[in-house]
Design a protein around this nucleic acid. Structure first.
Lengths: 165, 165
DNA sequence: TATTGTTATACTCTATAACTATA
DNA sequence: TATAGTTATAGAGTATAACAATA
């Protein structure tokens, strides 16, 4: 039945790989992002921040007085998710829910002085991290990449708006 | 104390936005990917596939006889996660666990004829989907984008290997 | 009636750890 | 002892739905 000479060396055709998936832009985007996500998490952890809280802090720094509903829209998450993030940042003394006198249902989110200091540290840490992470790409390539990313995002958003949902 | 004229119009400085976050490549990658992820899910759903099962199917099509451990390495997930995905694909009659006579612990994964037909349909659906999704970008831009994505992934992987983990 | 923030709950994805059967 | 596959369980992250206070 079995040949006695020449053992079977093709257990799997050479190296198993994701060749068929690499044709897809979506797969390559996911793969690249997953690779840097863990790095980002590790960069933020010493500052007591997660990706979600870092993002929320950035938006409140850039748009002081923003409401939680507005924050949910900017970050593309649900209002119920914002509550968790704001709770965490408020507990850490990073931001505050201040009353809105014209609408007593809503809160105006404000960054505390400690929050501003934390943001400056976090921003610098992330900038340093990305500089190291993308050391292989020169400034011009990075600009092109950023531009293509925003064009891809715009194209996808348009496509999404165009379809039925 | 308070001026009696001119009501307070700056509830929030104009439009709240994520300006401070856009400086980061990681944020733009996440944002762009999130936008297309839902689209991909909707493209695969009619075929009975999720992103995870689609990816696994693609790898087994491209590397027939691959083991579950190898598959976990290619897809960058844990072996326990592979079990779930392979269970689902096997239940759907898309692939099979065939015995490996040289190692009775392991399975060689094989795509069934139905699985091959499903893959061809899924591949075409995804190609059509991406063509529509990235309609705003010409072929040259897309090639540049793909190239930059793989360079970013390589750079990130190198950075990751270099640091202590 | 509609909206803001909140809570409880559930779902998806993935990770960890302990187990079995083989090696 | 180590490895392949499996199972149970737990943890993020996010979504849905119902609720109170207010508009």
């Amino acid at each position: 039945m079995a040949t006695t000479a020449a053992p079977d060396t093709r257990k799997t055709p050479a190296e198993p790989s994701d060749t068929l998936l690499r044709q897809f832009v979506g797969y390559n985007m996911k793969r690249a992002f997953m690779l840097i996500q863990d790095d980002i998490t590790e960069t933020l952890a010493p500052l007591g921040l997660r990706i979600g809280t870092f993002s929320a802090l950035a938006v409140v720094v850039g748009s002081p007085g923003i409401s939680q509903t507005q924050l949910s829209q900017v970050l593309n998450i649900k209002r119920s998710g914002v509550v968790v993030v704001v709770d965490e940042l408020e507990r850490a003394g990073v931001l505050e829910r201040t009353p809105v006198y014209s609408d007593r249902r809503a809160y105006a989110l404000q960054v505390t002085p400690a929050g501003k200091r934390l943001w400056r540290r976090a921003e610098r840490a992330m900038q340093a991290h990305e500089a190291a992470l993308f050391a292989d790409l020169d400034a011009k390539d990075l600009r092109i990449f950023q531009d293509l990313l925003s064009r891809v995002a715009r194209s996808a958003a348009r496509h999404r708006r165009g379809s039925a949902n």
